Amino acid sequence: MGRRSDFLAILPLAALAASTPVDLKHQARQVFDPFNPCKSCFRSSWTQGPECTANSIIRSTLSRVTNPPASATATYTPTKWCTDFLRQTDWSTSYTTSFGVSTHTDWTITHLFITVTDTEHPTSTMYCPIPSQGMVCGVDSNTIAPIDQGEDWSIEHYYNPEECQQVCLDHPLCKAYRVDGSPQSGWNCEIFNVGLGVNASHVINPTIPGTQWWDRNCQQHIPGPCRARAVRTAAPIQIEGDVEPTAPAENPAVPTPAEPLITPEPTLVPRADIVKRSAELPDYMSDLSYFWSYVYLTPACSCLITSALPPVPSTTTSTVTRWTSSTTVSTTYEDWFRVTVTPRETTIYMSIN
Rank of each mutant, 00 (worst) to 15 (best):
M1Y: 12
M1G: 12
R3L: 10
S5A: 15
D6C: 13
A9S: 15
I10S: 14
A17V: 02
S19P: 00
P21M: 00
K25E: 03
R29V: 05
V31I: 11
P34Q: 03
K39Q: 11
F42R: 06
R43H: 09
R43W: 06
R43A: 11
S44A: 09
W46T: 12
W46F: 13
T47G: 15
Q48T: 11
G49L: 10
G49F: 05
C52P: 15
A54C: 04
A54T: 13
S56A: 07
S56I: 09
R59I: 08
T61E: 12
L62Q: 05
T66F: 04
P68H: 09
S71D: 09
S71V: 08
T73V: 13
T73S: 07
A74L: 07
T75M: 02
P78C: 03
K80Q: 13
F85H: 06
L86K: 05
Q88E: 12
T89S: 09
D90P: 00
S92R: 09
T97D: 01
F99S: 07
G100V: 00
T105P: 01
I109K: 01
I109N: 01
F113Q: 03
I114F: 02
V116D: 00
D118L: 00
T119V: 02
H121I: 06
P122I: 00
P122H: 02
T125I: 05
Y127W: 05
I130T: 13
I130L: 15
S132A: 13
S132C: 09
Q133E: 11
G138P: 06
V139D: 06
I144K: 11
D148H: 08
D148E: 14
G150W: 06
I155G: 12
H157D: 09
Y158I: 06
Y158F: 12
Y159K: 14
E162F: 01
C168V: 03
L173I: 02
C174Y: 05
Y177A: 00
G181L: 14
G181M: 10
I191D: 02
I191L: 12
L196W: 08
G197M: 12
N199T: 15
S201P: 10
T207C: 02
T207N: 13
I208S: 09
C218I: 04
Q219A: 10
P223C: 01
C226K: 09
R227T: 07
A228F: 06
T233A: 08
P236V: 02
G241L: 07
D242Y: 08
P245K: 04
P245Q: 03
T246R: 12
P248H: 14
A249E: 14
E250Y: 11
A253D: 07
V254N: 12
T256G: 02
P257Q: 04
E259H: 13
P260Q: 10
P260V: 12
P260T: 09
E265L: 08
P266F: 05
V275D: 06
R277E: 08
R277T: 13
A279Y: 01
L281F: 15
P282S: 02
P282Q: 02
D283C: 01
L288S: 08
F291W: 12
Y294A: 14
L297R: 04
L297P: 00
L304Q: 10
I305D: 02
I305T: 04
L309W: 09
P313N: 08
S318V: 07
T324Y: 05
S326T: 07
T327P: 06
V329C: 04
S330Q: 07
T332N: 10
D335Q: 13
D335G: 00
V341K: 14
P343V: 04
P343T: 04
R344D: 04
T346V: 11
M350H: 11
N353H: 12
